[in-house]
Amino acid sequence: MAVAGDPNDPMVFYFGACAGGVWKTIDGGVYWRCVSDGFFTSASVGALTVARSDSNVIYAGMGESTIRGDVSYGDGVYGSTDAGRSWTHLGLKETRHIGKICIHPHDPDIVYVAALGDAFGPNEERGVFRSKDGGKTWQKVLYRSPDAGAVDISMDPNNPRILFATIWQTRRSLWNLNSGGPGSGMFRSLDGGDTWEELSGRNGLPNGVLGKVGVSISEAQRGRVYALLEAEGNKIGLYRTDDYGDRWV
C-alpha cells in the first residue's frame, strides 16, 4: 500500500490500498472516498506520488512490492491530471509489482518508476523506467537481470539529476519467500538516470549478498542519504552518507 500528500494543501491526502484502489481525503482524513473505481482494472496499489510542481498530477504504480504470501499483482502505471477525478492507464503492464515512483520537482512529465517485476518468476519488464512525456513513452534506464527488479528509488529535490535506486533479487512461491542474491544492490545516477554506478560493497557498505534495500535522500541536508540494508551476517542495519554515497557509516 502507499500514501501521498498534496504538497500545496495539507488537508489533501491519497491512500493506495493493497487490494482496494486509490482513496482521497480533502479534510485531513475525516472522510475518504474511492477515486479509482471505474478507471483501474487492478486493485493493488504499490506506489503513489503527487507532483510538487502541479498537484493535479498523480501517478499510481500498481502491485504492492511487500510481497507477502497473499500478494496481489498489478497492471502497470496509472496517471491523473485532475487531482484524481479521472485516470489513464500509462503502460508498463507487465511490471506486476511497483515499489516507488519519483517525479521531477519542476516538471511533472518527468517521472521514474522502480518496478520489481513478477514476484513469482523471471520477466524482463523490471528495473527503473523513465518517462519524459508524462507516461506516454517509457525508457528502461536501469536493469539488472530477469530475476532482480527495482524496489526503491529516491531523487534529490534540490538537484533532481541525482538519483539513488535499489535492486532486489527475490522470488515468491506459495510456501516461502527467497530474499537476496547476486542481483541485489544499490545504484547512483548523477545525470538524471542516463548512467548508473553501483555502490554495493564499496566505501563502507557491506560486502556479500544483499537482500531488500531501502534508500532516501535528505531534503534538509545536501549530500545526506540513508540506506536500510538487508545483508549477510551482522551487517544488516541503517547506513548514512553525507557526500552522496562516496563514504558510508
Rank of each mutant, 00 (worst) to 15 (best):
D133V: 12
D133S: 12
K136P: 05
W138T: 04
W138A: 04
K140L: 12
V141Q: 14
L142G: 08
S145P: 14
S145A: 13
P146G: 11
A148W: 07
A148G: 11
G149N: 10
V151L: 07
V151D: 06
V151T: 10
V151K: 06
D152G: 03
S154Q: 08
M155S: 07
D156T: 06
P157F: 01
N158P: 03
N158C: 07
N159Q: 03
R161N: 12
I162M: 09
I162F: 07
I162Y: 09
L163G: 09
A165D: 01
T166D: 06
T166A: 03
I167Y: 05
W168E: 01
Q169N: 00
Q169F: 02
R172L: 04
R172I: 03
S173V: 00
S173R: 04
S173W: 02
L174R: 04
L174C: 04
L174N: 07
L174A: 10
W175L: 05
W175E: 04
N178S: 08
S179K: 01
S179Y: 02
G181E: 08
G181Y: 04
G183E: 00
S184Y: 02
G185W: 02
G185M: 01
G185P: 00
M186V: 13
F187M: 05
R188S: 00
R188V: 02
S189E: 07
L190E: 08
L190G: 04
D191G: 05
D191L: 02
D191Y: 01
D191I: 03
D191Q: 04
D191K: 01
D191R: 01
G192A: 01
G192N: 04
G192E: 02
G193D: 11
D194T: 11
W196V: 02
W196A: 03
E198H: 04
L199G: 00
N203P: 09
N203Q: 11
N203I: 08
G204Y: 14
G204L: 10
L205C: 05
G208F: 05
V209S: 10
L210A: 07
L210C: 12
L210G: 10
G211Q: 05
V213N: 10
G214D: 14
G214P: 09
G214H: 11
V215K: 11
V215Y: 13
S216N: 15
I217F: 14
S218C: 14
E219G: 13
Q221S: 15
Q221P: 10
R222F: 11
R224T: 10
R224G: 00
V225Q: 05
V225M: 08
Y226G: 10
Y226W: 15
Y226T: 09
E230F: 11
E230N: 14
A231Y: 05
G233P: 13
G233D: 08
N234A: 11
N234M: 12
I236L: 06
I236S: 08
G237Q: 12
L238A: 12
R240S: 14
R240C: 15
T241Q: 06
T241E: 05
D242Q: 13
D242H: 14
D243C: 09
D243N: 14
Y244M: 15
Y244A: 14
Y244I: 15
Y244H: 15
Y244R: 15
D246M: 13
R247W: 13
R247M: 12
